[in-house]
Design a protein around this nucleic acid. Structure first.
Ligand code: MN
Ligand code: MN
Ligand code: ZN
Ligand code: ZN
Lengths: 145, 145
DNA sequence: TAATAGATGAAAATCATTTTCAATTAGGCT
DNA sequence: AGCCTAATTGAAAATGATTTTCATCTATTA
């Protein structure tokens, strides 16, 4: 969450906290929306230095593996969208405007146990996303930003 | 499911039932695994005529939109994998060998209602996938086919 | 059988993501 | 403060998946 925590976590994993990574974290943590690598690249190019799109990809990879980002799967053609941190939670995505709301308490334990019993699989994690329309999009028409 | 049903459904939507589409349906409905467009293309090229990869993509699009296929989202880099039909259900994916098992009765209604109440969203559908290891992969080591 | 909307396939175009590689730098250590 | 080195960066090229184009073909209906 805070810069301190992020810096510590990166260091713990042997990663360095570069200006580029700072900038990327900055952009993501200040955005309410989920951003594609290209989105982030665009936002950075306007203000920040001549950062490379490659670096964005690499930073996102590092940050994602360090548990500081989450991905949004549903949507157009299944690109990996990104969003800011948090504990275990899931996404509620608006089909109209693309807004993403987090929710937690997924309460899937019972279901996981049942499926485990039925299939013999050991379940490590789950992907759960709801797709619908936000209040604004239900009312007036709002286009995807 | 049956050829009749598929033909009828395609017709109902103004699509034609071509030999190529027959062949693709055939391949998918006889496979236990989820297949990429490239997989399907490969299987078809060996036996069937000189079908084009483009046609596979187009057929998959048509069949998916007609509700005859499902996609697998989790996995490597979030490509859209495909699998055979069924009613409303979800996927349990093995991280080891890639095997996909369907399960139903997701029982998400309560959760959906709670989230609806909390957020005001109208929820249309959900994406739920479990990721883990199948019995075989838990025992001996099995590589991704 | 003729008419036609829909379908096909090869090639080119797009688009996202990864790899390569030489140059730069953050962070640890004197 | 200065050095060392592994990590990082960025440009360009490579890769790979998916889509578009367009001329040709065909399944289906009348
Ligand atoms: Mn989130
Ligand atoms: Mn399925
Ligand atoms: Zn909305
Ligand atoms: Zn397995």
């Amino acid at each position: 969450m805070t810069g301190k925590v992020i810096a510590a976590e990166l260091k713990r994993r042997g990663f360095k906290l570069t200006p580029q990574r700072r900038a990327i974290i900055e952009v993501i943590s200040h955005s309410q929306e989920h951003l594609t690598p290209a989105d982030i690249y665009a936002k950075l190019k306007s203000k920040h230095s001549g950062i490379g799109l490659v670096t964005v990809y690499r930073a996102l990879d590092v940050l994602e593996r360090s548990g500081m980002l989450c991905e949004v799967h549903i949507g157009d053609g299944c690109r990996s969208y990104l969003k800011r941190p948090g504990g275990h939670h899931h996404h509620l995505v608006c089909k109209g405007c693309g807004k993403v709301v987090d929710f937690s308490d997924c309460e899937l334990d019972d279901l996981e146990q049942r499926v485990t019993k039925e299939t013999g699989f050991r379940i490590d994690r789950h992907l759960l996303e709801f797709l619908g329309r936000c209040p604004q999009c239900q009312a007036g028409r709002r286009e995807k930003s």
